[in-house]
Each structure stands twice: as structure tokens, then as C-alpha cells.
Design a protein around this nucleic acid. Structure first.
Length: 583
RNA sequence: GCAGCUGUAGCUCAACUGGAUAGAGCAUCUGACUACGGAUCAGAAGGUUUGGGGUUCGAAUCCCUACAGCUGCGCCA
């Protein structure tokens, strides 16, 4: 690894650098606004070259000059140095760049030699990021609502880690709070020990639902639940023992789903972890004048913020109890002081936006300047555009979704490739089933509500996990046919066909896409890119026979297959999705 | 009432954060082949980007406004 030459900058970065020196050599160099940075983007349409810049048009506005004249001056000063052909000026003043074949070929070699990073640079500014996601409630099974947080959070964590950040994932489970009043009462009055032994989660759910229904009919049961809660919070040994057992059972049930999803956490600091820190925190906020007593409760007001002016945050109830705002503030203290967080990212649904605005505002008032982000997302709807429910009207459980997805994937494999060995079929069904659910989530912009549809997510066509995994399988199939793996020393790289160059350009752009994903937390941009890689590969596949040609051309095409496979596998890996060798 | 998010082809979604002719997939129609995995590729058709104003060389994107859907708003989490 260390003996390899350093990976050169991306095409976009190299062209931008040349553009900057060109700007410094124009007649109007002295007049360019100090904050201006010339942007270079991949073109949407190859008729405009490979990369384009709108720098001339933006500068023309600032300098009050004609955009095409500005562009001409820039092009005149531009030294391509073998990277691209002489830039062209087009339309209102775009500057278009077309890469040279030799630049593409050089990059090709470098990418092949960089199996670990595929050209992706580490961040210049590594941070310690505490990533808060998934966070299910104890004693209730995870339902589809947790899919988005879990999958998005895991994917973002993988990407951040790959870019060189220190990521600490923390599953902030709801293991404390008012729901335990009901659970305790139900445990004492309704629990079926045998059923609990056999399969704890469904039994806990049954008890919870039963109590919930009863409290709505009978006020006295609600009261009884409240006193169970008070006893628990007061340290009652019996209730604490039940609570502990309940949390343990729930955690082991949750772990099974995380294992299936291949999601893991560095910590599970649940809400209960912060119990002892709440009272001192509120005292501190009162003492510092950030919080005040209002109508018997301790509140923080945001009178100077127009949006929050009439929306105070309550951090201690008039009966002395604490709320989740209190816990979240204590959690911030812990994460900054003891985990060393520079950034705290919360992958939590959009409805909690107000809550996080309040929490972040309070934290800033306390002088905590970490990079706080609420990574919000919309909801999952059924085909009827309403919240996803089972036929009986219950919330859909995540475990059931995953099981069904694997089953459906299995049926497809059975139909398409019945001769595969049983064991392999099962393994493939798992990768495709889980991958399809994850990809359906990650390939869409997180804020839009999305419609959960088996046929769409498991389709072999279009922007789906099965299509991408199939593209990967095809890159492997060719080496199976060849009877050996890729050997980098078995020839020279010679790019002759347009389809080859187009594919290579696409593959080189992996290094440009990946670092942008965290800018606005858009893993769907990575998904869209991978889909383009797959379609570009298929086009190459149609246009360029591999095993029917010989010599350097065959070597080059095999290298393209190999590199495509690596990018697809790695990119899907960043999304938390596996690949298989056959399917 | 106040606030936030969303609104793009018949359907499901994109659009690199202000760039060129708004792109894909389903569904529909037309082509290509002993095909290295056809689980493919090429092409056609499909749009007043919810309506209306504004900002500028240029707007799906920014501002104002109306409408529609979802969500939240002092003692749940």
C-alpha cells in the first residue's frame, strides 16, 4: 500500500486547479472577488464534454463584462498540460473540458492499483462524530418506522468512517419513561411466564397492548400504572428487577434484527443511563439563568427567536419529573465531555424537528459548539398513500418485513436459477432480501415520504438492489468463464472505444461523489451514481466483447470489468448492502 | 391560529444546491440476438415542475402569495 504512488487528485479537482491558475493569468485577475472559487462539474450531457465550468458567467456578472469574452480570456490563459483538450466555449459562456485519452489511461492505472480506496481521498478535517440512530423503545418490537433511522444511520456511519472520521455509533434506546408504568403493571397482572420463556418479544408486546387497552377503559388502572412508575423511579427493588429483566430480554430481541441487518453499535447508552444526571443538569440551567420556573414547571424560553418565541421547552414537570428534552441535554453533555464529540448527528424522523431546534439552541446557549445535526426523514406509506399498516390495522413489524423480503427474494432465485445449491440459494436470498429493503430506503431522498412496494424494490430492472447486484455478478461471471482472476500485469491499458472511455470516466468519478454524500446527508446520490455505473457497464458490455478479443484490448476490458466490480461492491458496501458471486 | 416538511410524466422517483434541451424505472409501443449471465441493449411516446407574481444572462431550485397533503406546537417519548 505505502509503496504505491499517491493517488492524484480527481479530474474535477485537477481541472479546477488549472482553472484557478488560468484565472490568475487573465487581464482581469486583479478584479476577481476574493471569495470566488471556480467550480468544475461533470457535464450532464457528453456533447458538452466531460466537465464544465460556469465560472465565466459568474465572473462576468461581478466584473460587468460579457460572459463569452471572459470565457475566451480564461481559455486563452488555460494550460491543459495533457489533462484535457483545448477547452471550448459554449452557450451563454460555459467552458467545456474534454479529457485526453492519456489522462484517462493514467487514471485507470492508478485506480486499479488503489483497491482499498478506489481513488477516494480521506477528509482533511477528521471529526469525532457521535451518530445517534435507530433508538427503538424497549418492550416494543421495532416497526417499519425504525427502518429509515436504522438503515440511514448505518449507511451514513459507514461513509463517514470511510472518509476518515471517527464515528461513535450510539443506540439511544428508550429504556426509561412513562411506558414502564404500564409494562410493570402488565408484568405483574397479565404476564404468561411460559410464553415469555418461549419467545419474549411477542409476549411483552401482547402485555403492553393489553394494558394499553385496559387503561383506556378503566381510569383506576391508569392510576395503578402511574404508581408503579413512581415506585420504579423511587428505586423500588422489585420493580427495578423487573425493569432490568425486561430491558435485557428486549435487547436480545433487538440484537437479532441488527445481526440480520448487519448493523452494529459502539454503545447502547439508553435513556436510563442519564437518570442521575438530570437533577443536577436542571439545577445548573436554573442557576445559570437559562431556565426559569413557569406555572410550576422548569422551562427554557426562546423569546429572542421569532420561530420559537411561543414554544418553550419543558425540562422538569411541575410534579418534579423529567422529560425527554432533559435526557437529551444530559446526553449532549456526556457525548461532548466523555466521548469527545465534535459533531453529534441525530437520525430521527421529521416530526421531531421542533424538539431538536430547541435542544440545539439550549446547547449553544450553554456554550456547546459541536456540529449538531438533525438528519430528518419522512414516513413510509403503504400503496394507499397512508401510513403503512398490516391488514389487521397493526403497525408493521420490521422483523416481518425482513423475513418476507428474504422469502420473496428466494422465490425469484428459485425461478431464475433453480440449479444453485440450497445453501447458496439461502445465502443469496438473504443478501438480496435485506439489500432490497435497504436500497429502497437509501436510493430515495430522505425527506420525501416513500411508498413501500415489494414489486418495485425487488424488481430486477431499474434502480434497485437486485439490478445492481446483478451487474456485479456479471463482472464476476466473466472471470469465472475466463477461469482466473484479474492479473494486472498481463497486458497494457489501451482505451480504444468510446464505451470504454465512458465507463472509465464514470468509475473515476466515484472519488468525486463519495465525499459529497455527507454534505447534505444524501446517500441517494451515491445510489444514483451506482445505478449509472451499472447502466454504463451494460452499455460497454453490449458494445465491447471481452473474451472474444485478445491482447491488450482484452486486458483493458477485463480491467474495466474488474474495476466496475470493485466500485459496485464497495459502493454497495458503503450503503450497508452485500453482494454475491452468483445469483 | 402559528410553525415545519412535501407537491415534478398515468405510477414510483431523480435533477450535483442558480446552469445548457427537467432525467430514470415501471406501464405502453417499435426495434436488435446462438446471448462473455437477454436478469440486456437501442429507440418512440409521455411535462405550463400545484396555480399566480417577482429577482437575472438563466429558476423545479431563491423571494412573495394562494392552494393541497402530512406533521408539530407547556408538563408523553
Amino acid at each position: 500500500m505505502s509503496s504505491d504512488p499517491p493517488m492524484p487528485a480527481t479530474f474535477a479537482a485537477s481541472i479546477a486547479a488549472s482553472l484557478r491558475s488560468a484565472l490568475a493569468n487573465t487581464p482581469f485577475a486583479a478584479e476577481i472577488p476574493p471569495g470566488f472559487t471556480a467550480q468544475v462539474d461533470a457535464t450532464q450531457n457528453r456533447q458538452f464534454g466531460d466537465y464544465q465550468s460556469n465560472a465565466a458567467m459568474i465572473l462576468a456578472k461581478a466584473l460587468k463584462k460579457n460572459p463569452r469574452e471572459v470565457a475566451a480570456a480564461i481559455v486563452g490563459a488555460f494550460a491543459a498540460e495533457g489533462l484535457c483538450e483545448k477547452p471550448e466555449i459554449a452557450g451563454p459562456g460555459f467552458i467545456n473540458f474534454r479529457l485526453t485519452t492519456s489522462a484517462l489511461t493514467t487514471r485507470f492505472g492508478a485506480l486499479l492499483a488503489d483497491e482499498a480506496r478506489l481513488g477516494v481521498a480521506l477528509t482533511d478535517t477528521p471529526k469525532t462524530i457521535v451518530l445517534d440512530f435507530s433508538a427503538p423503545n424497549v418492550a416494543k418490537p421495532m416497526h417499519v418506522g425504525h427502518i429509515r433511522s436504522t438503515i440511514l444511520g448505518d449507511g451514513l456511519g459507514r461513509i463517514a468512517k470511510f472518509l476518515g472520521h471517527r464515528v461513535i455509533s450510539d443506540n439511544h434506546i428508550g429504556d426509561w419513561g412513562t411506558q414502564f408504568g404500564m409494562i410493570l403493571w402488565g408484568w405483574k397482572h397479565l404476564l404468561d411466564e411460559a410464553a415469555l420463556e418461549a419467545d419474549p418479544i411477542p409476549e411483552l408486546l401482547r402485555v403492553y397492548r393489553e394494558v394499553n387497552a385496559r387503561t383506556k377503559e378503566d381510569e383506576s388502572i391508569l392510576e395503578a400504572c402511574k404508581s408503579e412508575l413512581v415506585a420504579l423511579q423511587g428505586g423500588d427493588a422489585g420493580n427495578l428487577a423487573i425493569w432490568e429483566r425486561c430491558v435485557e430480554l428486549s435487547k436480545s430481541g433487538l440484537q437479532k434484527i441488527y445481526d440480520l441487518l448487519e448493523v452494529s453499535f459502539d454503545h447502547w447508552y439508553g435513556e436510563s443511563y442519564y437518570n442521575d444526571r438530570l437533577a443536577p443538569l436542571v439545577d445548573d440551567l436554573l442557576a445559570s439563568g437559562i431556565a426559569e420556573v413557569s406555572e410550576g414547571a422548569v422551562c427554557v424560553f426562546f423569546r429572542d427567536d421569532e420561530k420559537l418565541a411561543d414554544k418553550p421547552a419543558i425540562i422538569r414537570k411541575s410534579d418534579g419529573g423529567f422529560l425527554y428534552a432533559t435526557t437529551d441535554l444530559a446526553t449532549i453533555d456526556f457525548r461532548i465531555q466523555e466521548l469527545g464529540a465534535d459533531a453529534i448527528w441525530y437520525v430521527v424522523g421529521a416530526p421531531q424537528q421542533l424538539h431538536f431546534e430547541q435542544i440545539f439552541t439550549i446547547a449553544k446557549r450553554r456554550g456547546q459548539d459541536a456540529d449538531f445535526r438533525h438528519i430528518a426523514f419522512g414516513s413510509i406509506l403503504g400503496k394507499d398513500r397512508k401510513m403503512l399498516k398490516t391488514r389487521s390495522g397493526d403497525t408493521v413489524q420490521l422483523a416481518d418485513v425482513l423475513a418476507e423480503s428474504i422469502e420473496r427474494a428466494r422465490a425469484i432465485i428459485e425461478e431464475k436459477n433453480p440449479e444453485l445449491p440450497e445453501e447458496e440459494k439461502a445465502a443469496i436470498a438473504r443478501v438480496i432480501g435485506i439489500g432490497s429493503v435497504k436500497y429502497a430506503e437509501l436510493s430515495q431522498f430522505r425527506m420525501t415520504d416513500y411508498i413501500f412496494d415489494w414489486d418495485t424494490m425487488l424488481s430486477l430492472k431499474g434502480n434497485t438492489a437486485p439490478y445492481l447486484i446483478n451487474a456485479y455478478v456479471r463482472t464476476r461471471a466473466i472471470f469465472r468463464k475466463l477461469g482466473s482472476g484479474f492479473g494486472s500485469s498481463s497486458g497494457e491499458l489501451v482505451l480504444t472505444e468510446e464505451a470504454e472511455k465512458e465507463l472509465l470516466l464514470k468509475l473515476a468519478q466515484y472519488a468525486e461523489i463519495v465525499p459529497t454524500i455527507l454534505e447534505d446527508f444524501r446517500p441517494n446520490a451515491l445510489a444514483a451514481y451506482l445505478y449509472e455505473v451499472a447502466t454504463t457497464y451494460h452499455q460497454f458490455w453490449e458494445a465491447c466483447p471481452v473474451l472474444k478479443v485478445e491482447g491488450d484490448i482484452r486486458h483493458t476490458r477485463l480491467a474495466l470489468c474488474e474495476l466496475t466490480g470493485r466500485v459496485l461492491r464497495h459502493g454497495l458496501g458503503l450503503l450497508g448492502i452485500g453482494t454475491t458471486e452468483r445469483m
